[in-house]
């Protein structure tokens, strides 16, 4: 069974069907891209996966170590607990908190000590907070952010904010990482840098990554498979080379006339 299997997923808002009958399978360890013109339903799909929206129909099943879980209709925090973590298209960091706190908050769901230890500061509290802190700094090291751990997140440059968001998502210890336009607003240099980072964390954390992206250089370079959405429907799927040559995809992006000409 694939790690994530999406079956006939549909979401309508009143009369508008934002995602219609989408079926996809993501195998463990894959790096899959989702592309499509603006308004194609890519972010809606992510919001369905992560519990922001409840599906109108269809199912999203996650295979966590042989145990199959239905994610459709779960609350976002339960989806995260099940092993899906995400970043946002428009960065949603805890802006007025420090870089370190941003990561530590994402680690909260795995905290072992109970409320009394928090109130009365038993040794458990000190031990766990200390190891939590070390773990967070280790994670920040990967993104070259540990020297900025006491900076407020809002004071970081844009590219580093994107990196911090990925670090924060990784802190929840996910099986699948969903990246919503990670390269948006980055210059070619930063994008190349990010491409490397994504490939590296995939190896290091044995992650399965699903990403939405407009930057074709990034998508074509690192994704093993690509799904293409248009008007909420899946119009194509396959390897980057196949997608590049797919007539329907070219039509969706450039309009019908161009492909006929």
């Amino acid at each position: 069974m694939p790690l994530l299997s999406v079956d006939k997923l549909t979401k309508s808002f009143g009369g508008l069907t934002a995602v219609s009958n989408v079926t996809m399978n993501i195998e463990k360890g894959e790096l899959v891209g989702i592309i499509g013109p603006n308004g194609a339903g890519k972010t809606t799909l992510f919001n369905l996966f992560t519990g922001v929206y409840t599906p109108t129909s269809g199912s999203i099943k996650l295979d966590s170590d042989g145990e199959v879980k239905e994610l459709g209709g779960l609350k976002p925090y339960n989806v995260t607990k099940a092993g899906l973590a995400r970043t946002f298209q428009n960065i949603r960091l805890f802006k007025d908190l420090t870089v370190l706190d941003n990561v530590r908050i994402a680690m909260h769901q795995n905290i072992q000590y109970k409320l009394p230890s928090a109130f009365f500061r038993f040794n458990k509290f000190y031990n766990e907070e200390e190891s939590l802190r070390e773990e967070a700094i280790k994670l920040l090291d990967i993104f070259h952010l540990s020297h900025k751990k006491n900076e407020l997140a809002k004071n970081l440059p844009y590219g580093e904010q994107r990196h911090l968001e990925i670090a924060r998502a990784l802190a929840t210890k996910p099986a699948i990482l969903l990246l919503d336009e990670p390269a948006a607003g980055m210059n070619p240099n930063e994008t190349a840098n990010l491409t490397e980072t994504i490939e590296w964390i995939r190896q290091e954390f044995k992650l399965t990554i699903l990403l939405i992206e407009h930057d074709m250089s990034l998508v074509m370079k690192i994704c093993e498979r690509i799904y293409v959405l248009d008007y909420g429907m899946m119009i194509a799927s396959g390897k980057p080379a196949e997608i590049r040559a797919n007539k329907k995809v070219i039509e969706a992006y450039l309009g019908e006339d161009v492909s006929n000409a």
């Binding site: 519990g51 960091l93 706190d101 908050i105 909260h108």
Partner: peptide, 28 residues
Amino acid sequence: NFIKSSYGRACISIREDEIAAESMGINT
């Protein structure tokens, strides 16, 4: 003590951004 624990940080994250807090696994 509460505020400076992981539980307190969870509360503060709700103030900062409820949607982000939820997607970081916090039952707001």
